[in-house]
Write a protein that binds this DNA or RNA. Sequence first.
DNA 1: TGACAAAGCGGAGACACTCTCCGTATATTC
DNA 2: GAATATACGGAGAGTGTCTCCGCTTTGTCA
Lengths: 191, 191
Amino acid sequence: MNSDVSLAKRPLRADAQRNYDRILEVALEVFTQSGIQASLDDIACQAGVGPGTLYRHFPNRECLLAAALDESWRGLARTSDDLMTATDAGRALRSWLIEISHHMGVYGGLPDSVAKAFSDDQSPLAPRCSLLGKSTSGLLARAQDAGAVRQDVTADDLLTIANSLAWATDKNGSSQDDVARLLDIFLAGLR
Amino acid sequence: MNSDVSLAKRPLRADAQRNYDRILEVALEVFTQSGIQASLDDIACQAGVGPGTLYRHFPNRECLLAAALDESWRGLARTSDDLMTATDAGRALRSWLIEISHHMGVYGGLPDSVAKAFSDDQSPLAPRCSLLGKSTSGLLARAQDAGAVRQDVTADDLLTIANSLAWATDKNGSSQDDVARLLDIFLAGLR
DNA sequence: TGACAAAGCGGAGACACTCTCCGTATATTC
DNA sequence: GAATATACGGAGAGTGTCTCCGCTTTGTCA
């Protein structure tokens, strides 16, 4: 059952590892600059490899994106751990939602992929998303226990809102302040 | 009002008009079924015309989309007129926002185009969007006068939210009820 | 009614992008 | 320094957008 990662799976050949790293590095740059719809062939070219090499390492755009997000999302996980110990659970939840919205804005078009991943277990992003869900559930529960948020709200609701607002900023180029403002209106409605 | 048709601009030749109508008819069907990202060449083919003919009448996807939305959005305008005379201004605003969200769901992917159009005056959808803005402003003002909504909220805020929620439903396939629920939370925060 | 210009048609094809296949090259192992 | 597993990369198939231009149809006017 645990065949996929643990056993076998010898390390990549040196040249393959080099290419893998280089592709990821370029992808990060290109996604940041042009959004996640950038041409993959172009990324391969900029990384100095052929398209075949890119697709061998990352069979599709989602896989590359998942890898490109990993570091950033690890930071998000650490943030959630920190917030779980904050004294004001209500404010902690607010900070968390703003944090998520910001992270969804690192690459243009990211909220789209994340939304898809939320409702598709097969997506390479799905495991990351479910971690996000767990963190949100934890922070929400604390806020609800503290009486800062009413009981009939789910973590999915909050993620939907945070992602939707990130999407809106992404699309019409409004500022992070606007996100926070709309989020605050929403949070006011949650009491 | 009807300036685009009345002066100069002689009427289309009979065959051209026939094709125009047919393309629009097919586009409506295909957009409804497959979303606005459907292949335009495919629409042309289904309409029994060559791609050249489609692109002559509708130079790009946005133009075709704008035409395909016209009738539906005229209905939206009538709804807003009705709501302007409703006695409960707060509830009227709520109905209006729900109505907008629903209309954004007629074609998969529509919220994306609408969001782009909101921040791009050149978009063929822009005039329609600004009408939407006017209606929303009117209904918002009434709700604010009635004390149902606080003063520091703008029509843009409301449109952003309505469209974002429509986008979220579109993406993760949640129900219209979910939209209404999230919208209600938001509206609760507006008081 | 028939001829002529204007209007319109449609499909070939340029261009862009995704993704695969497979002959060739390189790293690793013994 | 082979032998073998591993990886490379580019040609090209498939799909989609959009344009160009030679040919066809329509409307008009004598």
